[in-house]
Design a binder for these strands. Structure first.
Lengths: 332, 332
DNA sequence: TGGCATTGGGTAAACGATAACTCACGGCGC
DNA sequence: GCGCCGTGAGTTATCGTTTACCCAATGCCA
């Protein structure tokens, strides 16, 4: 069916090994004339390397497999992929994605992808969380992306949420804001850590948070949070401790806050500065005024993950925190 | 390194072929006792099939490759993947994605994925467009997803934009609207076809479009369309032919229309009904009131693509139109 | 009891690429 | 003149799995 080295060898009147050397041998010693002639014939025949055959000797396919805990739905996931892909391609590796879901648990998916004999396997989460891997799988996972291994044995790349909370809070303080409220995302690891950074920054500046209010995650994502956030914001703005800045657990919350502020006629950023997390560009750039927010280091996570997976020996486990980037827009 | 059939055969005291039969042979004749014993040993040793080795005999890997024209950024792409994946898995096939981009053109990417010897290769576009494939590649592409092959030789699955324009327009007419404007997306194939369906439906009902206005695509996506759409809408609403319904080229445009209508104090749907295309849930469900729109048949396209790619012989070329689904919400 | 399915399983040859050997041929130093 | 080494290429074994073919044993029937 497909063209093989043997076909080329026959046509060129040389042995298979000579063809192999000419096409893939790099700088193996060989007469230039021979090499060129063979390459030309291969080109004409439309030869395509058979990775499966090669992998029989090498032991693995030139693949990095990523097991995702969900389908790659978010724009964030896209950035992780981009980082992975760019970096892996430099080492002539392809990236292969699979997803847990339905009746396929991590063990089943792990076995499934193993049949392709990837060079390394990583695990990626859709949002920052802690993950408990079954021990027999954990040993073979080279890196965890956007999640932290509960056992601490697997190298884990996660966004530095706390640092981000710190940076954005300091940014608000630098902008002259003193009465800062935080509208958090309870139940989410990211929110918890962001809040910790927020409190630390205020503390260091000798300030007190005006308020730290919970939102309801499920409601936010179902689009039914409008009244809830509106109520919170209205209470805050009418209360005795009227904030001059509202830090939001993420950009989605910020979007609702914008709506709530508009309803009560408060100006952004003149009356109240607003800032968020995630740099969800669809939201952040389209809000009026555009939102100042902290950009997640997703591409960097992907890039670093690929580097780790390409390494001969996986590094020691432990958490690697990747810094967010402050994206200044007009809302502060 | 990894456990092989040979390892199991040695332990079980049988030949390799017997092990192969016991593990993969299906209903091949064999003593139940032997089969069970072998399976148990395989389980204990943690045997994992080596697809590369198997593919040496079969000629292909149990893979369906999809070449995308861009990275799978949109929520729509997710649905295509989901459909593909669900369907392919039923045939024990995995789905492998690659993307054109940077210095990698379609020919290069095609060669790259070919090295894995996938069973079939499909081509997917991020948005509905016409695509010209180099002839040497076109012959080996089994199906085009969300795009139409310019030559007409490759089977192409695309959304039935014209039908969708027809359905939603009829829906507006059925709701009693008679003065319907269309805010189109010029330069996009989808917009052109949607408009055609819109005009046909009006024509059939003996109505005239109140207006068909262009928006500027680049501006829409860059978030700078606000003033443009606002101007259009304001002109329309103040003009002599005040519409009682505005059909928008897509949900993003509808979002801008909402903002424009709010600014001039027009009520939705009481003063003006608004409808869109795409069912971009992030937008459609979060607007106030939620938007009536036509849902793209992305999952169906994925499912059908997988079915075509699994078929022994690719079907004849030609366009297959997949129907949108009307999603009624409160904006009509 | 001889012939013949049927059952259960072994043998060995592929598949395509690679790599450890081997080999032939000149050139060169002693 | 002899042996040695470097160059360029061929031989062959090997990776893990499947499959076409073969063989031995058993049971069945005439």
């Amino acid at each position: 069916m497909a063209v093989s080295l043997q076909d080329i060898a026959s046509l060129a009147g040389v042995s298979v090994k000579t063809v192999s050397g000419a096409l893939h041998g790099g700088s193996a010693r060989m007469a230039d004339e021979t090499r060129d002639r063979i390459r030309k014939i291969a080109e004409e025949l439309g030869y395509v390397t058979n990775f499966a055959a090669r992998s029989m000797r090498q032991g693995w396919m030139p693949l990095i497999a990523i097991i995702g805990d969900e389908l790659l739905t978010s724009p964030f996931a896209t950035e992780i992929i981009r980082g992975l892909d760019n970096s892996a391609r430099k080492a002539d590796l392809s990236v292969f994605f699979t997803t847990i879901g339905g009746d396929r648990d991590i063990i089943k998916v792990y076995d499934d992808v193993s049949r392709f004999r990837p060079r390394a396997i990583g695990y990626a989460a859709m949002y920052h969380k802690e993950v408990v891997l079954p021990p027999e799988v954990a040993d073979r996972i080279g890196v965890m992306i956007n999640c932290r291994d509960a056992s601490g044995r697997v190298a884990s790349l996660v966004p530095d949420e706390e640092g981000a909370g710190n940076i954005i809070t300091n940014h608000l303080i630098d902008a002259g804001r003193r009465k800062i409220a935080f509208l958090n995302l309870p139940g989410l690891l990211a929110g918890e850590l962001r809040e910790r950074g927020f409190r630390a920054a205020l503390d260091e500046a000798g300030l007190e948070p005006v308020a730290v209010l919970p939102a309801v995650k499920r409601a936010i994502y179902a689009g039914r949070a409008r009244s809830l956030v509106a109520q919170h914001v209205a209470d805050l703005m009418a209360g005795p401790d009227r904030p001059d800045a509202i830090l939001c657990g993420n950009d989605r919350v910020a979007m609702e806050v914008y709506a709530a502020l508009r309803k009560i006629g408060a100006g952004i950023p003149d009356d109240v500065a607003v800032a968020g997390f995630d740099n969800q560009v669809d939201i952040a750039t389209r809000l009026d005024p555009p939102l100042t927010t902290m950009a997640l280091p997703h591409r960097a996570m992907g890039r670093m993950a690929a580097e780790i997976l390409q390494a001969a020996e996986p590094p020691e486990g432990g958490l690697k925190l990747l810094p967010f980037q402050l994206v200044e827009r007009a809302s502060v």
